[in-house]
Amino acid sequence: MSFQTVTLTMLDGFLLNIQLFVVTLVLALPLGLVVSFGTMSRFRPLSWLMRLYVYIMRSTPLMLQLAVVYYLPGILNPGHILPRMTAACLAFVLNYAAYFSEIFRGGIQGVPAGQREAGQVLGMTRRQIFLRITLLQVIKRIVPPMGNEVITLVKDTSLSNFIMVGEIIKLAKDFGNKGMIWPLFYAGAFFLVFNGVVTLALSRIEKKLDYFRV
Rank of each mutant, 00 (worst) to 15 (best):
A28Y: 05
V68H: 02
S203V: 04
K207D: 09
F194G: 00
F92Q: 02
I108P: 04
A28S: 15
L192A: 09
F190A: 01
L64P: 04
Q137N: 15
Y96C: 01
L25Y: 06
A67D: 04
I108R: 09
S59R: 05
L131D: 08
R58T: 04
R204M: 13
A113F: 10
L209R: 08
N177T: 07
G166T: 11
A28I: 05
M63I: 15
L64T: 13
W182D: 13
G147S: 11
F175V: 06
V68Y: 01
P73I: 10
V138T: 04
G119E: 13
N17E: 00
G38S: 14
T86K: 02
L209S: 06
Y55D: 13
F130N: 06
L171W: 04
F21C: 09
M146W: 10
L62Q: 00
Y55V: 10
F43Q: 08
F191N: 04
P61N: 13
T39M: 14
V193K: 03
L49S: 09
C89Y: 03
L136H: 10
G147C: 09
M57C: 08
I142Q: 06
G176A: 10
S203F: 08
L33I: 08
M40F: 06
P144W: 13
R141C: 07
L122H: 10
L15M: 14
L159G: 03
R204S: 06
V193H: 05
E167K: 00
E117F: 12
W182E: 14
I75G: 04
V121F: 08
G166I: 02
R58K: 14
R51L: 14
Y71M: 10
Q65P: 05
T24E: 00
R42P: 03
G119R: 12
M1V: 11
Q109R: 14
R116P: 03
Q128F: 07
R42T: 13
V143G: 01
G13N: 08
P78F: 13
M63D: 09
V197K: 05
I168L: 13
S2N: 14
F37N: 07
P78V: 12
P145G: 06
T86L: 11
K173W: 07
R116A: 15
V34W: 11
L46E: 07
Q128K: 12
V69K: 00
Y211T: 15
P30D: 13
L27T: 02
Q120V: 11
Q128D: 12
R42N: 09
L131Q: 12
R44Y: 05
M164Y: 10
V150Y: 02
S203I: 05
K155T: 03
F37T: 03
L11G: 12
T7R: 09
L64Q: 05
A189I: 15
K173S: 09
G147E: 06
P145H: 07
K178D: 07
F92W: 01
N95M: 01
C89H: 03
E149N: 10
A172V: 01
N148E: 09
V197T: 05
N195Y: 02
V165S: 02
F3G: 07
A87Q: 01
L94G: 00
A88F: 00
F37S: 11
G147P: 09
L46Y: 03
I151F: 02
R44Q: 11
M57G: 03
W182C: 04
V22Y: 01
